[in-house]
Amino acid sequence: MTDLVTATEAALEGELPGARGELSHGVLNALRAPAGAPLPDPGSAERADPLGDDLQLALYVSYELHYRGFAEVDPAWEWDPALLAVRAAMERRFLHALRDRTAGHPDVHDALDELLVEPVDGTGVSYFLRDEGQLWHLREYAAMRSLYHLKEADPHAWVIPRLHGRAKAAFVAVEFDEFGGGRAERVHARLFADLMADLGLDPSYGRYLDAAPAEMLSNVNLMSLLGLHRAHRGALVGHFATVEVTSSPGSRRLAEAMRRTGAGPAAEHFYAEHVTADAVHEQIVRRDVIGGLLADEPSLASDVAFGIAATTCLEDRLGDRLMAAWQDGSTSLRAPL
């Protein structure tokens, strides 16, 4: 039986981050006390910028309680009614901002068609990294993305009980691949930890939370928001499809960047694996997950399209942040590595 116990217990939880304003300060302070301690008034969410650091960090922290949580934070906070009330106020602001920014988005068929066109002369982060990225850019990129990739595919797992039949079977098949097809060493989160080690980064869970700007937090918060609410199951599927459809060509460019800079075999492998894996996933997601969901619930078509538009909007925002910093020769993180 001793082989069931690992010799060294790696920390599963992250550390609480530093506050970025009044709202996150209030939430973080409360979390250091047992569940039930006084929280900021939900009205304070009304005063914060919906896509800014303060609200996005407070939201990120309240969602993280549903994943691995934080070291020395009372697990009962996860379902604390007062925290859920503050969270709901933040979610309303966040969703409202996303609806504003994606108003007039195309319908689901046009949105998918758009995603499936490869630009002739593409610009953006993956092109920059492929053509002129240096090791420090790749390290910043990986530190930033680690907020998601160290829990890759976890936010999406919440939608499983809300899908049925064809959509569910196909969705779970893709998730099974994301989770390594039954092999711990192939879990995508593990492959990303190996990439981080190649790049000389610390793969501890949550290590780069303090370094990540609002543009990255909002990306992960979108997945958590859509995953945790059954009402947003259509948008979650749209989000998932966007990630899978755009991943293959982007991953090819990132694999080339890793190879050119000599980042290391695991760093290259993470993206090379995503080139072929996601070429499969995108077809299954479009045909069976979206197709199956909309056959069951045709009224969710506009939610799926919103999920695609919101994901694209936040990804573009993150890309703008990265490129603006790098073209200036400065760090894209809140503090350099």
């Binding site: 758009e114 499936l116 066109v117 490869e118 630009p119 002739v120 293959s248 060509p249 090819r252 090379a272 080139v275 072929t276 996601d278 070429a279 499969v280 995108e282």
Partner: peptide
């Protein structure tokens, strides 16, 4: 495909988004 025989989505239509 540059990962032949596996698909790498190189078949995709190219154009302006």
């Amino acid at each position: 495909s540059r990962t032949y025989p596996w698909c790498d989505t190189s078949h995709r239509r190219r154009g302006r988004r």
